[in-house]
């Protein structure tokens, strides 16, 4: 039974390129494409507990290197973990960190004031009007 797991993993890994293979009329064969994914010695595999974790090969993308580790339980994918992901602004910004603060009310010396679009009527009483008058 223990030996069945790597066999299954290899079978699943070997199937992936076949699924992804699109007949193009070219001479490239799916066997060639299967080679990197199916070779277990090019990726590290560790068995722990019930599942078996297999690290995929590193894929170079224009955002940086990506490598995933897939944990199999039997022939089922139990989890996928990112081993390496691009340290790219787009990735970092995907989950922005926000700081929560208490709303303050202050007066301070400023050059200008940003606020919601004020009407020309509202301007008379605005802080910006005071700043404009002061500097004129």
């Amino acid at each position: 039974m223990k030996r069945a797991i790597p066999v299954l993993v290899l079978s699943v890994a070997g199937l992936v390129p076949v699924w992804r293979y699109e007949p193009s009329g070219g001479t490239s064969s799916s066997t060639e494409a299967a080679a990197p994914a199916a070779a277990p010695d090019s990726s590290s595999a560790s068995s722990g507990g019930s599942g078996k974790a297999v690290a995929g090969s590193t894929v170079h993308t224009d955002k940086g290197d990506v490598q995933v580790e897939v944990t199999f339980e039997g022939d089922r994918i139990a989890s996928v973990r990112m081993l390496r992901q691009p340290d790219h602004p787009q990735t970092a910004a995907a989950v922005p960190t926000l700081i929560a603060e208490t709303l303050q009310a202050q007066s301070a010396d400023v050059d200008t004031v940003s606020g919601a679009t004020i009407t020309s009527d509202g301007y008379r009483e605005s802080l910006q009007a005071a700043l404009d008058a002061k500097g004129a």
Partner: peptide
């Protein structure tokens, strides 16, 4: 550098932060 005050959303004569 320019000091840009952000108007307080409820108090028209106050700022809530300065950038």
């Amino acid at each position: 550098p320019w000091r840009v005050g952000v108007r307080h959303p409820e108090l028209a004569d106050r700022l809530c932060t300065v950038l």
